[in-house]
Design a protein around this nucleic acid. Structure first.
Length: 252
DNA sequence: GCGACAG
DNA sequence: ATCTTGTCGC
């Protein structure tokens, strides 16, 4: 068996996304999600992958679990992995999900009591070309509630960086303020959120699995000390730190 | 041809 | 994702 040509690969990936898309649960399913202050929520997870400068194959897969509401690190796992799939916009999950799932499996096997009750993913969830971004993919395959947080706006589903969009951003006065990102159909696929009073640039929140948009936005805001929610920020920081200490200047 | 293109 | 330090401002 040889690797299928890129075109066939993309076709296969598209059908795979369409199939898994049907399994996404777009509503709150957990008890803690119904509480205004999320009482019952004790652990929030964050995942990320970091790469070495000129290498897009070897990366550090990171999983962190923080306490809630204190946001203190309870668990950390850094693991070097070898990626096989290329990065193609719209198919990020096929490149990263396998390794993020492995990290969750290691945790489940070694310290099941530390499994997070919700996982923050850097990237989009429903706010995606086919309404099935990385956060949905990881959510469906892991069965865990997931929230997608993108640092940049994906211009898709009729959402553009228009004058109107810019003015809506300017109207976000304080941390917690948000406005909906609606598809041409009118369906709200996510929300632009001013995550803290200081950051004027919003983050784009969309649900991954087993959580409603409004709960996802509220939760994201409550996990932000800075612009990027703490679980993702810690995962990013620690995976980069791992690469720094284990792979110093790869020069001559 | 031009612009977009999560990480 | 990564290449990259200081710097201007609150």
């Amino acid at each position: 068996m040889s690797a299928p040509p890129p075109e066939d690969l993309v076709k296969h990936w598209e059908s795979e996304q369409a199939r898994l898309r049907q399994q996404v649960v777009e509503e709150d399913t957990e008890e803690w999600q119904t509480s205004p202050d999320f009482s019952g929520l004790e652990r929030v997870g964050g995942v990320d992958l970091s790469f070495i400068k000129g290498d897009d194959v070897n990366a550090c897969a990171q999983l962190v679990v923080l306490s809630y509401p204190d946001l203190e690190v309870l668990y950390e796992d850094s693991q070097m992995v070898t990626l096989t799939a290329p990065y193609i916009a719209g198919f990020l999950a096929f490149r990263e999900t396998p390794f993020l799932l492995e990290a969750l499996q290691r945790l489940k096997r070694n310290q099941p009591r530390l499994l997070p009750q919700v996982v923050f993913v850097d990237g989009n969830g429903l706010f995606h070309y086919r309404e099935f971004g990385l956060a949905c993919h990881l959510g469906v395959l892991s069965g865990l509630p997931c929230v997608g947080v993108a640092k940049n706006l994906l211009q898709v589903q009729g959402v553009y960086k228009s004058e109107e969009h810019q003015s809506q951003i300017a109207a976000l006065q304080k941390g917690g303020d948000s406005f909906p990102l609606a598809a041409a159909s009118g369906k709200v696929l996510g929300k632009a959120l001013r995550s803290s009073d200081k950051s004027s640039k919003p983050v784009y929140v969309s649900i991954g699995h087993k959580i409603s948009v409004d709960t996802a936005v509220h939760l994201t805001h409550s996990c932000c000390r800075y612009r990027v929610p703490e679980p993702i920020r810690q995962a990013d920081f620690r995976s980069r730190e791992y690469l720094r200490t284990h792979f110093p200047a790869a020069d001559t």
